Simulated scan of single mutants.
Amino acid sequence: MKSTRFGLVAAAAVLALTASACGSDDGGSGGSGGSGDSGGGDGIKIGIKFDQPGLGLKKGNEYTGMDVDVATYVAQQLGYDADKIEWVQAPSAQRETLISTGQVDMVVATYSITDERKQKVSFAGPYFIAGQDLLVRSDDSSITGPDTLDGKKLCSVTGSTSAQKVKDKVPGVNLQEFATYSECVAGLVSGAVDALTTDDTILAGYASQDQYKGKLKVVGAPFSEERYGIGLKKGDTEMCTKVTDAIKKMINDGDWQTAVDDNLGAAGYKPPAGNPPTPDACS
């Protein structure tokens, strides 16, 4: 997608950085050079999910979702127009590696801030507080939270910690494990299962899809807290401060609410308590 001229400029920049050897951990990171500056580079690489409706979804050459909107806003505050963003797929298991090796400048991908992850990367934010919840059919009033799942068929993906949390709390639940959340949603619509559990943002994203509008709803009784942050290279305090300031501005000027409404509002989703969040000092 980049022009030949851009490729030559980027190559020259990489050679210059290599020659300076300013504390780089490796010589082939593949990063854009955007980390730590406020728009002086030619572009910025941002890791997102490619398969989460309402959050980070790739369809052809189009990228949509709340995480995409947040990332685009932050990039613009750093001096990068939307056409200077290179989107990189960031599966959950690869996020730390993508950051530490310089393959991306930041990750905005339902990336919960945890003490374990903070040992490997720095976080700006949070920009959203999510919670584990339940997705049910719109006409089902019998399920109002985990304590009403006894004897019900609950779906989540194979190996999901979300489903296991519910099973531990409600031993009588009938856990059904599918390979993907999309399969769970299809099973919910057909009546094969009674509920689906994972982060409420992910649930709202599926419920907001055109084919499911009016058919599904998020229960709205979250029973965990997930603080979504923007992952950055460990110890890059300057960049982290700039990104946190950008998140604060997005919240204050109303664009944060617009992003939530545009991407998740169709499901009747209401962000849980604590939103909009107050971004902490960089961690």
Rank of each mutant, 00 (worst) to 15 (best):
V170N: 03
L149G: 01
D168G: 07
K165I: 12
P171M: 10
K152E: 05
K152D: 01
S142W: 10
G145V: 06
K169D: 08
T148I: 04
T148D: 15
D168Y: 03
D150E: 14
K153T: 04
L135N: 01
K153F: 11
D139Q: 12
K152F: 05
A163Q: 14
K153H: 13
V157W: 10
L134I: 10
S162T: 04
V166I: 15
L149A: 02
G151Y: 13
D168A: 13
A130Y: 08
G131S: 09
T148P: 05
T144I: 08
Q132Y: 03
D133P: 00
P171D: 05
S138L: 09
S156W: 02
P146T: 09
G131L: 13
G159T: 07
K169T: 12
V166N: 02
D147F: 06
G159E: 08
D139V: 05
D139S: 12
V157P: 01
V166K: 01
V157H: 07
G131W: 10
G159D: 07
P171W: 11
L134Y: 08
D150P: 01
I143R: 05
S141D: 15
V157Y: 14
V136H: 02
L154M: 11
V136A: 04
T144L: 10
V170W: 10
L134K: 08
T158H: 04
G159N: 10
S141H: 12
S141K: 11
V170E: 13
L154E: 05
K152P: 00
S156N: 12
L149C: 04
T148R: 12
D133E: 11
D140Y: 10
T158E: 09
S142F: 10
V157F: 14
